[in-house]
């Protein structure tokens, strides 16, 4: 097996942001005393006059970003995902989203892979909290390359964005020149028995799971659904039709995140079983990232198990069903 290259999403963000800063002087950056962690420090070192440290004041940071956008700047505001989505929720809603302000929120330390900092700092609700916002684009990149692509795209497109990065390094899955388009998912692996729709770190687990399933004779498709909102409805419907069974996988609560978004679309268009892999416990725990992913069932085995379950729940083919009714 070839060795998997690991790369940090937040590093990719910090570098992409600094590159953007050199290309466009309207790019400004705000951080709430976490610039070293979110990696906005790279931009801050190169463009100190366009970097605003707002101190430990996330609400002020988000509304200030809205003001910068109102005056024509392209603000990127960063802090940990728990604070960006939770602490400043009302500011994201009213100051940024309602007025369609051109603010890009890039939140690091998403999910349980925050690790040792423990339950209070593990954002397992942020996708749900941001997905419900009006006028926003919500992105959970699968790797460092997609992070850079999403950040570049966000800078080009007008309107609010929420992009989730991570503390931990993720396996590199995509090409360095990968493109990102909101509302467009990518098929990473074709399959006919079940479709695994994943985002973030769980995309790599989904690919591993598909390999395990393949050894059992099960053909699993894998989709990278990095654009949570707008979501690629066409892809979801195709997957439901082609495979008849769906598994979602995310480093987030099973309530309100990718799994919910997919289930919502599936139930309205092409009802098939949807099994959600994600955080089922109320809160996380301190620990090492991989240890926590295993402990809370967000790993390859959990995806494999969910795939078996989803396939087992498939309805009988329509023809057989009709016969059953007639003879029943």
């Amino acid at each position: 097996m070839t060795e998997v290259k690991m790369k940090s999403l937040r590093d990719a963000y910090g570098q992409a942001l600094a590159d953007l800063g050199a290309e466009n002087e309207n790019i400004v950056v705000l951080d709430a005393d976490l610039s070293g962690s979110t990696r906005t420090s790279i931009f801050a070192a190169r463009f100190p006059e366009r970097f605003f440290n707002m101190g430990v004041a996330e609400q002020d940071m988000v509304s200030t970003a809205a003001g910068l956008a109102a005056a024509g700047k392209i603000p990127f505001a960063s802090t940990f995902a728990v604070f960006a989505s939770g602490r400043a929720w009302d500011q994201v809603r009213q100051s940024v989203c309602m007025g369609k302000m051109n603010v890009k929120i890039v939140a690091s330390h998403g999910g349980i892979t925050v690790g040792e900092d423990g339950p209070t700092h593990q954002a397992l609700e942020d996708i749900a909290l941001m997905r419900v916002m009006p006028n926003i684009t919500v992105i959970v990149p699968a790797d460092a390359h997609e992070t850079a692509a999403a950040v570049r795209r966000a800078a080009q497109l007008s309107g609010p964005f929420y992009i989730r990065t991570a503390r931990d390094k993720f396996p590199v899955l995509l090409r360095e020149d990968v493109e990102f388009t909101p509302g467009k998912a990518a098929r990473l692996r074709e399959g006919t028995d079940v479709a695994i729709i994943a985002c973030g770190i769980m995309v790599s687990k989904a690919l591993e799971a598909a390999e395990v399933l393949s050894n059992e004779g099960v053909s699993a498709a894998v989709v990278n659904m990095s654009s949570i909102k707008p979501i690629d409805v066409e892809m979801i419907v195709s997957m439901a039709r082609e495979t008849g069974a769906i598994v979602t996988a995310e480093e987030h609560s099973i309530i309100g995140g990718l799994g919910s978004a997919v289930a919502e679309e599936v139930s309205e268009t092409e009802p098939v079983p949807v099994i959600r892999v994600g955080m089922r416990a109320a809160v996380g725990s301190s620990g090492a990232p991989e240890e926590l992913l295993n402990l809370f069932g967000m790993n390859t085995e959990a995806v494999v198990e969910a795939a078996r379950k989803a396939i087992g729940m498939k309805k009988e083919p329509a023809a057989t069903q009709a016969k059953t009714v007639m003879t029943g």
Binding site: V28, F52, Q59, D60, V62, S63, T64, A65, A66, G67, L68, A69, A70, A71, G72, K73, P75, Q91, S95
Partner: peptide
């Protein structure tokens, strides 16, 4: 906060 952002710009 919004006013400050505009003022910074």
């Amino acid at each position: 906060s919004i006013s400050n952002g505009i003022a910074m710009a």
